[in-house]
């Protein structure tokens, strides 16, 4: 989990994670005050953290993938280490640690709902929120001279419609096969680089524009999106 924060970082998950750990810390401190023998706080936190580790499995729940803890692995290890000597003093903290798994499960589900409410994955403007640094690049020799104009692009983006992608194999054949109508022409010969998605969304898409200047293809790590516009999205040089 530590490894993948750099791409999936989104502000809702981060807030939920922070909230979760604050709650755990609060519970630990409250429990410590309740008990008669106050053990050193670092040992208590260590036991709590160790007991957070568990054998878990992933399931799809409400369109999300969540971890469900089943075996309190960390708790058993902590018990073996402490045995009878000080176990009674740490028992409660150990269970706080293990139960934290379910707290995080609930928070993750909640965060998922809030995220879906704040950010719409199907809306192209989620991926194209900041166009200040956007730059159009021709990625194929079939691209005509074209210029990216922010105002023109933004106004057409507002009226864009999700479009059918079931013909991707035909697109491929048209360009790839010698008798294809678009032989050696690329359907999406432009890439739009440097556009940024909405702050905190943690999303990223590679953005391609269609040769007629009216189509938008977004490639994200989960899936592709295709949109068509009535108006031109680019300033295209006329074909002679």
């Amino acid at each position: 989990m530590l490894l993948d924060w750099h791409y999936s970082w989104n502000v809702v998950d981060a807030a939920a994670g922070l909230l979760g750990w604050l709650v755990v810390l609060g519970l630990v401190i409250r429990q410590r005050h309740k008990q008669e023998t106050e053990r050193p706080i670092w040992k208590i936190l260590l036991v709590t953290l160790a007991c957070y580790l568990s054998v878990s499995f992933k399931i799809h729940l409400f369109g999300q993938i969540v971890n469900v803890a089943i075996l309190p692995l960390g708790l058993w290890v902590a018990y073996l280490f402490l045995r009878n000597r000080t176990w009674p003093d740490y028992r409660k903290f150990a269970w706080i640690g293990f139960t934290a798994n379910y707290l995080f499960l609930v928070l993750a589900l909640l965060a998922g709902f809030i995220y879906g409410f704040l950010y719409d994955r199907n809306d192209p403007s989620t991926y194209l929120a900041h166009l200040e640094k956007a730059k159009l690049v021709a990625i194929h020799p079939s691209a005509r001279q074209a210029a990216f104009e922010k105002e023109l692009f933004t106004s057409s983006l507002a009226e864009i419609k999700a479009s059918d992608m079931s013909g991707t194999l035909d697109w491929y054949r048209e360009s790839q096969l010698e008798d294809g109508s678009q032989y050696q022409q690329e359907r999406f010969p432009y890439a739009l680089l440097g556009a940024e998605s909405r702050w905190g969304s943690g999303l990223h898409a590679s953005i391609y524009l269609e040769s007629d200047g009216k189509g938008l293809l977004l490639a994200t790590k989960d899936r592709y999106y295709y949109y068509r516009s009535e108006k031109l999205m680019l300033r295209l040089e006329e074909r002679e």
């Binding site: 990625i139 020799p141 991707t168 697109w171 690329e186 010969p189 592709y224």
Partner: peptide, 8 residues
């Protein structure tokens, strides 16, 4: 469905 444009 997916479609990866050619880069050349």
């Amino acid at each position: 469905y997916y479609y990866v444009p050619r880069v050349q």
